[in-house]
Amino acid sequence: MPFNPFASFSGPWDPSHRFETSWLLPPAVLAAFRAVFSIYIFTTLLFIIGWDCSHSSLGGCAEAGDEFSYFTVLTYWGLAFYFAVAAVHTASYAHSGFALLDRFPRSLQYLHSLFYSTITVFPFVVTAVYWGKLYAGPWFPAVYDAWRNVSQHAMNSGLALFEIIMTRTTPQPWIHIVGLILLLALYLGLAYITRATKGFYVYSFLDPAQKGGSGLIAAYVFGIAVGCAIVFAIVQGLIWVRRWVTETKLNKDGKFANADRQAADIEMVQPNKP
């Protein structure tokens, strides 16, 4: 059979509501978890902005504005919005048996799937780059700095794992690798726009004046792109293993909404659909 990167999108969109259900948690509980995660992330981000504004050595909120040039911060905002959107879709499914996402145009449904891929891949990239390259120790003397970095550089991956392990999603289309690499390329452009407009490099390894110059920058950029693709492949494997363990070995097809009486039957008829 020829390779089709869009195979997961043939036929009806998500007929058994895999994006809104868990193999273990009832839909209402899954919606609550997602809502709590979103609230925590938004609270963390807004507290950091308030802290930076009130403790700025320059006065005002200029330093807080600089935060939006960091990939860490942008991906954390992405997690916040994903969990908020996912909580709404899951709550609507728990209430009526139909997710709000079901009523969206197919293009937005595709983008939701890509959104899922970003929040299950980018957090691991952030965590690996930060603790492997940027963090040099010793541990943060201030509790605020420790909490801030643990929230953004460790808990982010924990929340990504929750979405990989606890939901019923299927492996996403491999074409998503292109989207992920494109987003990384767009961020690289933002990083150098920040250098041109604000006068600083968001990450030291992007500075051509460092030892190794442009060649080393190219190596870092290529390495991160390859690492992103590898992480995506690992996530695909984890999702496949989770489905095999929970659905094949444990016979846990999923927890469905009371109003949804067709999900299990549809999944039996169309086992390869998302």
Rank of each mutant, 00 (worst) to 15 (best):
W147S: 01
I266F: 12
C61Y: 02
P26V: 15
T194D: 09
T44E: 04
A160L: 12
A128M: 04
S22Q: 14
L25P: 00
W51S: 03
N4P: 06
R34N: 11
T127K: 01
W51V: 10
W23F: 14
P138T: 15
A196H: 09
D260V: 02
R242Q: 03
G254I: 01
L30I: 14
S92W: 13
V126R: 07
L79P: 03
T127F: 02
I193W: 13
T197I: 05
T194E: 10
G179C: 08
Y135G: 11
V121M: 02
I224M: 10
V241S: 05
K198A: 08
I39A: 12
A80W: 01
L74T: 02
N156I: 03
T21E: 10
T43L: 11
A80C: 09
A257D: 03
E163D: 15
S107A: 14
A91E: 08
S57V: 05
V73T: 13
H112E: 14
Q236D: 07
P15H: 03
W23D: 03
P274C: 08
T248K: 13
D14G: 04
S113W: 13
T167W: 02
P171K: 03
A7T: 01
D14R: 05
I165V: 15
V221D: 04
K133H: 12
P173M: 04
A264D: 07
L183I: 12
L183C: 04
I48W: 11
L58S: 02
Y40P: 00
F104M: 13
P27R: 11
V226Y: 06
I48T: 07
D253A: 08
V29A: 15
D260R: 04
L101K: 08
N251R: 10
E247Y: 01
H89Q: 13
S69C: 03
F37Q: 13
R261F: 05
S16W: 05
P171E: 01
M155K: 03
A136W: 12
